[in-house]
Amino acid sequence: MSTLILADHDNKELAPATLVAVTAAAKLGGDVHVLVAGEGSQAVADAAAKIAGVAKVLHADDAAYGHALAENLAPLVEGLMGDYDYLLAPATSTGKNVLPRVAAKMDTQMISEIVAINDDGSFDRPTYAGNAISTVKSSDAKKVITVRGTAFDKADAEGGSASVEAVSGAGDSGKSSFVSAEIAESERPELTSAGIVVSGGRALQSGENFEKIIEPLADKLGAAVGASRAAVDAGYVPNDYQVGQTGKIVAPELYIAIGISGAIQHLAGMKDSKTIIAINKDEDAPIFSVADYGLVADLYKAVPELTEKL
């Protein structure tokens, strides 16, 4: 038995979610290999080789793979799958984009965002915004799976000494090309791997209020900043802040929801957090039904006071 993991990275660093996929792969048993496809991505291949439990790194370095275009990556991955029983990727935007394309080429019904691997070879995955957990067993010869980033521990980034083998694929499909990106650089921890997340909702009313009220609290706690869909739609914060069913899934040690009502779509993205604090002026807000500590208060008074007193 053997597993190939499609690594997520930005050509410089390995995304931490990749380490979660390694843990899931180890649970499946057998050899674990990691594919690093990128451009100028030697540092990532070297980092992947150090992950504890990884036996081999396949490194495809080519301009065609620099932006993780699905049209170029999918044939490369598919071409390598002859030797493997499982294909895994973290359920990041790249994993979600590329893996179904590979699965269809392999005539395989992919399994999205697993949260558990059971002894009988079945998998658990949340559906209906996390309101139902389905246990599914695949009859496909090879299995293609994305792994939810919060569901397994991260494998040790150090301790392994895998060999790195260069591989190549067909390269550029000519069907798509990269034009530009707006990737925000932030000093704060990354949302999906942060230990503490402070999120704001529609009640913040503006981007300035996010800066004045949410960010100082986040900075005090060394936290990442998240948001509800309503706050993103209104343009208070960028799209990559959205926590929820159709945004990012987080499960930090502490999640603080401020001026967020707690719609099921939002809860789907944060209710596995260890401790939840909610600040909302409406005592009937559904967010209080999942909060360990609730404060019924006007956020414009309570949050600055909280930041001050911490």
């Binding site: 399994i111 309101n131 139902a132 957990i133 209080f288 500590y293 404060l295 019924v296």
Partner: peptide, 25 residues
């Protein structure tokens, strides 16, 4: 291709306590 063995509700989160003020929080 996928056999659904079962569909269950996720573990329910217990609601905690409402704290009276910022100092308690």
């Amino acid at each position: 291709r996928l056999e659904v063995l079962k569909v269950i509700e996720p573990p329910k989160r217990e609601a905690g306590e409402i704290v009276p003020d910022v100092d308690t929080l």
